[in-house]
Design a protein around this nucleic acid. Structure first.
Lengths: 356, 356
DNA sequence: TTAGATTATGAGAGCGCTCTCTGAGAACGC
DNA sequence: GCGTTCTCAGAGAGCGCTCTCATAATCTAA
């Protein structure tokens, strides 16, 4: 169990180098020798020490998935699980070791910084995939400062020029508006995401651009900013209920659920009185009443792609630690994944509800 | 950023050993020298390479938290988040690096075994804390075979003699029965956990022992086995509703929620018709209607203690890799944490509802 | 047959740290 | 004045692996 290459070599009557070759599939080995070595290895249940290997190779073959949120919150999230699943799947395919890096919330930011610092300077990971979140900007700065190789899942507002894989938030918003327009709607409002998150601003930008593209004006009273949560959707719904638009693009499933709760409380029917297209396509969106027409984003796919991007970044930076990472001279790689319209029950034709 | 001890030593005009001493707080260094070295270190933002250090020390100062469940399921669990939080907190206190090890579910068990194998042979962790789960027995076997140092959170039925930190399931069940008896109940039934999990059998054993201790008989029709889920609680509740006992000990909050749903559907009131004491004390238990009287288990504390136990195990095994770990000759360490009765609204005196 | 390529293996120098051992000076006791 | 004990710092041998280079053995081609 606790042997070394050296010992295996001796037992097999060869040199350390030969055992290494056998293990790593090197060329130029007589099959007779290879088999003999293999036999000794399996007999002794030998596994090379990964730490030593990492030191020699200057590569750990491990990546970290970092979510700058306290452990607890992370589990009550709809976005993170599929992302983690995607990352895990990609790691499995690429024969990588993945560690979920969680940082629980020590009271003072100093201690938190210390925690991140340890993660970034540990050298245990070849790179990091970070799920962007409201508080990820500080962390992003640290990663840059520490020269960590990383990829962001979701664009970072304050650092627009970093390697990331994003989803087509602008295009998704446009698809939502197009769908609504195709149903005959012209009075369309939105409950937007927060202005401090790229998904928030992009979806709003996309909405406005699409409306303009259709020569439709948007009533300022029909544009309300939420923060992606159910509660903020509920509040926004309440605010809109007095003078609702005929249709609404709501920037997250959660907010849509909240808004529908508010509408129900005020006797407004969806889709009869208000058509709704939301964004995310999380499982939740299929179980609301009515089920949400939504823009589905490929979250697990984002995770997969982020890992692939990270690995290619690491590979090009091969002589590791040479200069600041993730700042390629020909621009940081960026990937924008397509989203899709999922039509369900929260939208209907304008002319089927002539009441308004 | 990418320097070595050697380079720092040269810049500071000392030897590598001296720099190492400064970093690791070694004795016998003139303050003048120490300060000079420190200055160079901070000036160059130097951080020793953790991989090299791990190799030299034969210690990584990293532990893994392993949950043998697919990533997705892990997030829909009430037990895991606080456990992770406790482990993370302990790691923070002990200056340990923690990685959450997730294993997503490849179709064939062979591939899954391969994944675990990689984790266990990686050498990236000094030890592992594993949250026991229905499927953890195979994994336990692997850890033993691979000589991994580990601690279980929750006892493992098939391997009773392993280091673990458990909660007092038996005592908790007794407390539940005592409470019910003190309220004047004598017709007490139970919805038990699954027979394949230690928490299931222990809570049932505790229940039976407590009943016997009070010279109370239990009607076999009032003992139903569930699997800790809401659904199984609902099913059991339906089954009991025709001829319900005056009180019920339900082995998990989730099952209690399910049973209450069933009772409500059948017009039975809690606590007026049936008093209920559940087990777990998860946040859920405070938000049901009525709020549950429950046996609260210290999950985060389990996580903390598991880490502490793991570290002491690792420390005693110091000349690492010498013989099978976790099998101390004087028995594996075991810790049983106390639970507490949390009285809320789902229990009341027997005599306040003379109707039955 | 002999030079030259090809195949197969070993020697040994790292990777970046830790830690023991050794030794030089300074302080101290008698 | 001379051992003895501290205090301080460097030399150097690892930790367990990888990988280049040198070398030996075998196989061509002329």
């Amino acid at each position: 169990m606790a042997q070394t290459l050296e010992q295996i070599a001796e037992l097999a009557g060869v040199s350390r180098a030969t055992v290494s070759r056998v293990i790593n599939g090197g060329p130029y080995i007589r099959t007779e020798v290879r088999e003999r070595v293999m036999r000794v290895i399996t007999e002794h249940n030998f596994h090379p020490n990964a730490v030593a290997r990492s030191l020699a190779r200057r590569r750990t073959n491990a990546i970290g998935l970092l979510v700058p949120e306290p452990v607890g919150r992370l589990f009550n999230d709809a976005y993170f699980p599929p992302l983690a699943e995607g990352v895990a799947a990609a790691c499995h395919d690429l024969d990588l070791y993945m560690a979920l890096l969680t940082v629980n919330e020590p009271a003072d930011p100093e201690a938190r910084g210390h925690l991140y610092k340890r993660i970034f300077t540990s050298g245990y990971h070849d790179g990091i995939v970070m799920a962007s979140s409201p508080r990820s900007d500080v962390v992003t700065k640290m990663m840059i400062d520490f020269g960590v190789t990383f990829v962001l899942a979701g664009r970072q507002l304050d650092y627009p020029d970093l390697p990331c894989v994003d989803v087509d938030n602008v295009g998704g918003a446009r698809m939502a508006v197009d769908h609504l327009v195709s149903l005959g709607h012209s009075s369309i409002g939105t409950i937007a995401g927060p202005a401090y998150m790229s998904a928030g601003v992009d979806r709003l930008d996309g909405f406005r651009a699409a409306m303009a593209g259709h020569d439709l004006t948007v009533d300022p009273a029909h544009v309300i900013e939420g923060d992606f949560t159910e509660q903020s959707g509920f509040a926004a719904g309440l605010q809109l209920a007095d003078n609702p638009p005929g249709a609404l693009f709501i920037a997250s499933d959660m907010m849509a659920a909240g808004a529908m709760r508010a509408f129900a409380a005020r006797g407004l029917r969806v889709p009869d009185d208000v058509s709704i297209v939301s964004f995310d396509g999380f499982p939740l969106s299929a179980t609301t009443h009515p089920a949400l027409t939504t823009i589905t984003q490929p979250v697990a796919e984002s995770g997969r792609r982020a890992v692939e991007m990270l690995i290619s970044l690491i590979d090009t930076l091969l002589p590791r630690g040479s200069g600041p990472a993730a700042d390629g001279e020909n621009g940081a790689p960026r990937l924008v994944l397509p989203v899709a319209l999922t039509i369900r029950e929260s939208t209907c034709r304008r002319d089927t509800h002539l009441r308004r």
